[in-house]
Design a protein around this nucleic acid. Structure first.
Length: 756
DNA sequence: TCATACCGGGG
DNA sequence: GTGTACGGTATGA
């Protein structure tokens, strides 16, 4: 009898409260569980296992079970000790192949070998966090303040700590003592989870290196190790061999809120940046009186005003705690599903990191042989459709899109990996979609702000993440066990056809198509229509699409400026303006130009062409009268050359940002430093540095007016090119008085140009 | 101008 | 023993 598909999704062992697992190749596992708030430590034996494509390398007496079906990986081998087993296999394989096999990984195509903790979870059907809510976890946050970014040159001078009960304190003194105090604070609080922003990219590598240099034991885990362990990772610290590693403290889960932020922004694309301060401000976590200090100045400020840095560091750990709770629920919920440690699921890519483990567990639970990894046959991955039907200004805009297009197509047309003979991926996606709907309903039914609401919303987010990466799994090339580029192309082909069909059917009902991208379409409706007509048309077209593919009425807007593919502005009926795409939002854009753009586009979309002209003229007058601040003409740049490197090329080519640094008297900087610069008058393009974050910026207003007038015209006004005829455009964005033959601005109307 | 490499973050 | 989710920008040909 095949196992219940819910076992594929959830595992089968109901053991509650697991908050951490650590397993050794010797078959010894330690499980930490939180039962009614109390931590329980359990020691267990498990039989390490692996799956091979042959038995002739096995030592005599190895326990082998042959799996059923066609897959090449059909021999499930168990042993008391993993290291003894793998070394016996590599020795035998060396003899068989008459070449030295140094490590069992060299047999990669013929092998499933998971880390010991995942072997334990797959074999037992256990997962983390059953019957636990996120707030049951004991979470500690810490944040280093250092004299710089390089642990070989710089040092720690302060650590802020927030313990699981919310108490904050700062650790100070000599560096070795600060590290020892941190170790003591962690031991005293005994948290299940340690969190910080960029924990794996900065704090842990820095701490590890400083502790080694100073000879201080870094006992941060629960097993008595005096150093952190390491694992390979896609993002983290660079190791000696050039690969990336992350640190591990057995018994605790080391969670980097940057991972959650990246995952979140991947879906929403709304964050202004991924730094702690920017995210906390955006999400409303930051306090109004949040102490801010530019990174490079933290130590200098500490020497002059240590209390200020203490406030700053404590604000950091408090924000991290808030951010981790706000964004960390999805990874927490994932850990209830997939047989991996929580910290691995928090930073894993969903395809290889979540779906692959789920499929391996499903196959072994079914006693089914697994396919070996397969090389691609050279077939190219084909992508989504993108159409720009018209550019310029249109009114009465509707956006319709298909919810979760690719997984819906996989379900509707039963497209799964060819080698997945159990149909496990589609079965998992079906289950996830169904159970996510249930989780969403349960979240809605729970009181706002309640623990239940949080739990269900987090589970819904986790399930959405997995569902939406099922397609990515297909297209992952050789990296995933069941990858199938033909199936992936079949999905995108259906997607393109579906988008074309939607556009055709909408156009046939009298709308003007504007832009269509992958799974959604913007169109304009006739003046006589009201919202019911708009919804009716979307519903009519939706009814023509395959079952499981749901076309939704996503929104309606008063007007749209369609500039280029993926670059447009929308004016809502509530007066809200949304700008999309690099043409309208760029981190490098000068604030005065962005302000002009927002103001002028809002007026354009409101039908006020005179206002567009007025905004342009007003901006030029403000520049000429130097009523615009220096900050507002500056732009943000990243320094990519060291001072010495720049001096070598300076004679050949002068670069704005470095000239600014030199003009400001700065002789040292690091690669990656971000500064704001502007072009000042005199000296043929002198520029200055502005400190970005700390306090009030200087405001000498000695900027090069003519330069910024040109920037306004060439960079910002140019965004209106598609909105007017060339003559009208020239009239509106004339610098001085109107030319003789141009018609009055009041007579100008924006245009919409249908693409050929 | 186009292709590709690499960064995102931390003090 | 990990990964190839994007989109920007900086670079070199």
């Amino acid at each position: 009898m095949p196992p219940h598909p819910d076992e594929w999704l959830w595992g089968w062992d109901p053991t509650p409260g697991i908050v951490s697992v650590w397993a050794e190749p010797s078959g010894h596992a330690t499980i930490w569980r939180r039962i009614a708030g109390e931590l329980v430590r359990e020691e267990a034996r498990f039989r390490p296992w692996l799956v091979l494509d042959r038995t002739d390398d096995l030592p005599a007496g190895a326990a082998v079970r042959e799996l059923t079906g066609e897959g090449a990986l059909r021999y499930l081998v168990r042993a008391d000790d993993l290291d003894a087993l793998t070394s016996a296999i590599t020795q035998a394989a060396s003899r068989r192949l008459a070449r030295r096999i140094g490590h069992i990984r060299e047999l990669e195509d013929g092998l499933v070998l998971l880390p010991p903790d995942e072997q334990y979870l797959v074999a037992t059907g256990r997962t983390y966090f059953r019957d636990l809510a996120f707030d049951d976890l004991r979470r500690l946050q810490f944040d280093l303040e250092t004299t710089g970014l390089d642990p070989l040159r710089d040092r720690i001078f302060l650590i802020a700590v927030r313990d699981p009960d919310g108490r904050t304190h700062v650790l100070e003194g000599d560096e070795a003592s600060i590290i020892a105090q941190l170790v003591a604070a962690v031991a005293a609080a005994d948290p299940d989870v340690i969190e910080n922003h960029n924990l794996h990219g900065f704090d842990l590598p820095f701490l590890d290196r400083r502790a080694r240099i100073l000879g201080v034991p870094l006992r941060l885990g629960r097993t008595g190790d005096t150093q952190l362990r390491q694992r390979g990772a896609r993002r983290g610290a660079a190791s000696q061999n050039g690969r990336k590693i992350r640190f591990v403290a057995p018994g605790r889960e080391l969670i980097d809120t940057l991972d959650a932020v990246l995952r979140h922004d991947f879906a929403t694309r709304e964050l202004p940046g991924h730094g702690l301060k920017a995210v906390a401000r955006h999400l409303g976590i930051a306090g109004a009186d949040r102490e801010l200090i530019a990174g490079a100045r933290v130590h200098d400020v500490y020497l002059a005003d240590p209390a200020r840095v203490r406030r700053y560091a404590i604000a950091d750990v408090e924000e991290v705690a808030g951010l981790a709770r706000m964004m960390g629920g999805a990874a927490f919920a994932l850990a209830k599903l997939a047989p991996r440690r929580y910290e691995r699921l928090a930073d894993a890519g969903a395809a290889t990191g979540v779906i692959d483990p789920l499929l391996v567990r499903a196959y072994l639970r079914s006693g089914a042989a697994l396919p070996a990894h397969q090389r691609g046959d050279g077939t190219q991955h084909s992508g989504a459709a993108l159409h720009l039907f018209a550019s310029g200004v249109a009114e009465r805009i509707v956006k319709a899109d298909v919810a979760s297009l690719y997984p819906s197509l996989m379900r509707a047309y039963r497209i799964g990996p060819a080698r997945d003979r159990l149909g496990a991926l589609l079965a998992l996606v079906d289950r996830l979609v169904e159970q996510r709907l249930a989780a969403k309903a349960a979240a809605r039914a729970a009181p706002a702000g309640s623990r239940e609401r949080y739990t269900h919303e987090a589970m819904s987010a986790a399930m959405k993440l997995v569902v939406n990466s099922a397609y990515g799994y297909l297209g992952a090339g050789e990296l995933t066990r069941f990858a199938d580029v033909h199936a992936a192309n079949e999905v995108t082909r259906h997607g393109r056809e579906l988008l074309d069909q939607m556009c055709r059917e909408l156009a046939a009902r009298g709308v003007t198509l504007l832009e269509a991208d992958t799974d959604g379409v913007y169109f304009a409706v006739p003046a006589s229509w009201d919202e019911r007509d708009e919804r009716r048309v979307v519903a009519e077209v939706a009814a023509l699409l395959p079952p499981l593919v749901q076309l939704e009425f996503e929104g309606r807007y008063a007007a749209m400026l369609s500039h280029e593919p993926k670059n447009y502005a929308l004016l809502g009926y509530d007066g809200k303006l949304a700008l999309r795409g690099v043409a309208f939002r760029s981190s490098r854009a000068e604030p005065f130009g962005e302000a002009f753009l927002r103001d002028a586009i809002a007026r354009l979309l409101a039908g006020d062409v005179i206002g567009v002209h007025a905004a342009y003229v007003a901006t030029i007058r403000a520049l000429r009268g130097r009523r615009i601040t220096t900050y507002d003409v500056s732009s943000r740049v990243r320094l990519t050359k060291l001072p010495g490197e720049y001096h070598e090329t300076r004679a050949a080519r002068r670069e704005l940002a470095y000239e600014a640094m030199l003009a400001a008297g700065r002789t040292t900087w690091a690669i990656g430093d971000r500064v704001r610069v502007y072009r000042a008058v005199g000296g043929g393009g002198l520029v200055r540095e502005i400190d970005d974050e700390a306090g009030e910026p200087e405001d000498p207003r000695d900027y090069d007016v003519d330069h910024y007038v040109r920037v306004l015209r060439d960079t910002f006004a140019a965004r209106f090119a598609s909105a007017f005829t060339p003559d009208d455009f020239a009239t509106i964005f004339e610098d001085n008085q109107l030319s003789l033959f141009s018609r009055p601005i009041a007579a100008i109307r924006p245009i919409l140009t249908i693409s050929p």
